[in-house]
Amino acid sequence: MMGSYKGKGMGNEDYSGIWVFAEQRNGQIKNVAYELLGRARELADALGVELSAVCFGHEVDDVNGLIAHGVDKIYLVDSAELGDNQEDLLTQQLVELVQQHRPEILLAGATALGRAFIPRVAAALPTGLSADCTDLDIDADKRLLLQTKPTFGGNILAVITCPEARPQMATVRPHVFSLHETDGSRKGEIIKVDFKRERYTSRTKLVEFVAEVAETVKIEEADVIVAGGRGLEKAENFEMIQELASVMGGAVGATRVAVDEGWLAYPHQIGQTGKTVCPRLYIAVGISGALQHVVGMQTSECIVAINDDPHAPIFEVATYGIVGDLFQVVPLLIEKLKKR
């Protein structure tokens, strides 16, 4: 695998089109794939090339639906053995397809799966890869993908390119691109690829999956998030946050401090060491707005901050702010919302 070194001299003009790896889990295509397709369609138009999706799985729901998200071609590999995303198989299959069809750009979600196997694809091809990007752009003249990725925990952003090797690869953080309107009238083509199991080896085996997060609303997918921080003072006060969230039809989030204090479980944690979320509305209650938290929510469409400290940095990212005692503001807000 170390033999075919770099695409140097092979002629980058041989490579064309943008591919998005449409990750499925339990037969459902993940949201991040649709988010990526929205942005990838724009990039493909800027380059004047086709957009393709690659989907590996078994009896995946609504593969056709990818077309409405802007896809021209879908490479679909359907096999019972691909259902549980064995990474050895995914890696080898994707490498083979890329070598065959030569896309100039390959994108995938920076999910647990994407961040685990996409680097292996890049190493095997071999080509450059940037991880966990938060923005993508095109330098149309040079046909280069400009990949913006956070480093130093989001305190520094770097723009990365892959000038020579192809494809240019990036994993992209979920929720950084918003979903585009779908277009049901779009035409596209599904190319079914035979899965030749005998050609591949799998050395790791999934024995069992155990679901651990028993949340009613997943914060990564929520349109509205009400989050609490140190200002809540104790676990019981999160009931107030819970109530506001349920009145708003949203999910509950928390800062690291609140989770460290044991007021809420880790799956609710938002920020550098927790989840990155991008809801339409984010209500930050008793949250000072430490950078480590803000990097996880700053792309929210609308941010409301309720805090008694007018100098709290959360107000710098807030769309709307109330400087006041949250123990007065929140109950009143709940009361008035309920009356509506």
Binding site: P126, I156, I303
Partner: peptide, 26 residues
């Protein structure tokens, strides 16, 4: 394979609207 084209510090969104008045007004 990759090159760092540039590095920069993330920019904060500008300050929004802070509501005035008593709790009820806010």
């Amino acid at each position: 394979f990759t090159r760092v084209v540039r590095i920069f510090s993330p920019q904060r969104v500008c300050r929004g609207e802070i509501f005035q008045g008593d709790v009820e007004d806010q």
